[in-house]
């Protein structure tokens, strides 16, 4: 498992350039362009189970779903950041990509540290330190457990 370390304000154009927005919408089209302008090595080398650690305001910028769809498709397990931009955060919930907001863990991380995550108990292990991240609200867990917002909506429509 590899840790991809990025800084503050990783915006939606860095994650997935705007020029492809109206030509790429499915995972296979999105994958090769992920983080293209910031880190061309990412899409070539990323593997299932990798983690991204980033700074403040991850995902700021446009309402753009391709970054989340792409990160999920390449198998990113989670992103740990100091904070997220809100539309990106919503988008991740709706697509079932798990994000962790934990400034302490980001600050504690230095290159080469081992990182492990205990999703059930809300714990992150960085090197020899342990951090706790807050539980999600019930409504959000329900969306996640349904497998994303569209599934959740489908179930709701069926019950009507």
């Amino acid at each position: 498992m590899k840790i991809w370390r990025y800084g503050d304000n990783i915006d939606t154009d860095m994650l997935f350039p705007g020029k492809y927005v109206y030509t790429c919408s499915i995972a296979e089209e999105i994958k090769p362009h992920l983080l293209e302008d910031l880190d061309p090595s990412f899409s070539k080398n990323v593997k299932e189970g990798d983690i991204i650690i980033a700074g403040k305001n991850f995902g700021c910028g446009s309402s753009r779903e391709q970054p989340v769809i792409g990160l999920k498709a390449v198998g990113i397990k989670t992103v740990i950041a100091i904070s997220y931009a809100r539309i990106f955060y919503r988008s991740a919930i709706n697509q079932g990509l798990f994000l962790i907001e934990c400034p302490e863990a980001v600050e504690a991380y230095s290159d080469g540290d081992k990182v492990e995550i205990d999703m059930e108990n809300g714990k992150i292990f960085v090197g020899n330190k342990t951090f706790i991240f807050p539980k999600l609200p019930e409504q959000i867990i329900a969306i996640r457990d349904a497998g994303g917002l569209l599934e959740y909506t489908r179930q709701k429509l069926k019950k009507r």
């Binding site: 309402s63 539309i87 709706n94 917002l149």
Partner: peptide
């Protein structure tokens, strides 16, 4: 609105905010 600059309508004292495409679909 499924566009980040949906927040513009605060100019006219409305509450407005951007969401993503999946939410717009729902």
């Amino acid at each position: 609105g499924s566009d980040s600059h949906t927040c513009s309508y605060g100019a006219i004292a409305a509450f407005s905010s951007g969401i993503d495409r999946t939410e717009a679909a729902s």
